[in-house]
């Protein structure tokens, strides 16, 4: 895999557990060494550089704060361990710690021990500690994984703020697609150790490169179809979609629940049976079973349209993508590495 990250970018590594996202992050940091491939920082080879010399700010999943040290000492650690000549004088270190404490909004908590802080506060100490060494890149491993939903939302906004102010190249790992899409400039979707797609959230939503991406990034329905000479058929119905030069044979049409609607004209590509109809604040939500498909869909509709609903409704697809039934095997790329 080859991955280029531009300076100042906020990039998310998104994937299910075991997809290799944390491994990739650790390789960038130098905590794991790749068996093949290279890591470049600003075009210069950092593969053989030791962790200590890479100047990466790493925020660990469970923060890995030094629990026997006060918060201020945790933050100062990276400055104090510098070799004698590069070490700033004590007063300067103290000033930097105070500055960082207020930067992460923890003024006055420098004397506390990590055990005396809440999860969100610890997260911020970990970030301040990583920022203290003025890193070239900031790497965060599941930064919000261990927090409850509300703190998570707050910290998400706050991290975006931090990124805006520091303009640090930032890479974070997450398995939560909402988080990735919400925060990142670009998202790297990983699956089984491979990059499935790299793109902005918009690109991932609008032009997913593989069945994995479309089903991992948001909800998707897959209809088994067959392709014959440029025509796509689902059962005995034809679906009007560009086959993108697909060869004859079985394929799958993917669409998002939001992209299917009840056809106002009465003419639809698909037909379904309404199983349930419920009111929502703005209209109705119908649970519909598509003929020939074993799962149900939820479709939102207006109250006016719902008035004409019978038991059976015609459905039309606004947007869909087609992929061959068996995902093709991509050639194995020899160059495993990330360029920053």
């Amino acid at each position: 895999m080859t991955l280029d990250i531009a300076p100042g970018e906020l990039v998310a590594l998104l994937g299910p557990s075991g997809s290799g996202k944390t491994t990739l992050l650790r390789v960038i940091a130098g905590l794991s060494s790749p068996s093949r491939g290279r890591v470049l920082f600003n075009g210069e080879d950092a593969t053989s550089l030791r962790v200590q010399d890479r100047r990466v700010g790493f925020v660990f999943q469970n923060y890995a704060l030094f629990k026997h040290m006060r918060v201020a000492d945790n933050i100062a650690y990276g400055l104090r361990v510098r070799p004698w000549r590069a070490r700033p004088p004590r007063a300067e270190i103290d000033a930097r710690v105070a500055e960082l404490l207020s930067f992460v909004q923890l003024d006055g908590l420098g004397e506390r021990y990590p055990a005396q802080l809440s999860g969100g506060q610890r997260q911020r100490v970990a970030l301040a500690r990583a920022l203290a060494i003025e890193p070239r890149v900031l790497l965060l491993d599941e930064p919000f994984g261990a927090l409850d939903a509300r703190v998570r939302k707050d910290l998400r906004r706050w991290l975006r703020e931090i990124h805006k102010r520091t303009r640090l190249t930032t890479v974070f790992v997450t398995h939560d697609q909402d988080e990735a899409m919400d925060l990142a400039d670009r998202v790297v979707v990983l699956n089984k150790g491979r990059i499935e797609q790299v793109g902005t959230p918009g690109e991932l939503y609008d032009r997913p490169a593989s069945p994995f991406v479309i089903s991992f990034v948001g909800e998707a329905v897959a209809l088994p179809v067959s392709v014959t000479n440029g025509h796509v058929t689902f059962g005995d119905r034809e679906i009007h979609i560009d086959t993108l030069g697909l060869r004859n044979g079985p394929a799958r049409v993917f669409f998002r629940p939001a992209d299917i609607a009840i056809a106002p004209s009465g003419e639809g590509e698909l037909e379904g049976r309404i199983e349930n109809l419920r009111r929502t604040p703005s209209g109705v939500r119908a649970t519909i079973a598509i003929d020939g498909y074993d799962q149900t869909l939820e479709i939102d509709s207006s109250i006016e349209a719902a008035a004409t609903f019978g038991d059976r409704v015609p459905l039309t697809l606004a947007r869909a993508r087609i992929f061959p039934a068996e995902p093709p095997r991509f050639p194995d790329f020899a160059d495993v590495g990330a360029g920053i």
């Binding site: 905590l31 962790v51 890995a64 030094f66 650690y77 990276g78 500690r129 990583a130 060494i133």
Partner: peptide, 10 residues
């Protein structure tokens, strides 16, 4: 924690 110390340059 050791890894954290290493990334901080120790």
């Amino acid at each position: 924690e050791e890894e954290a110390a290493l990334t901080l340059g120790a």
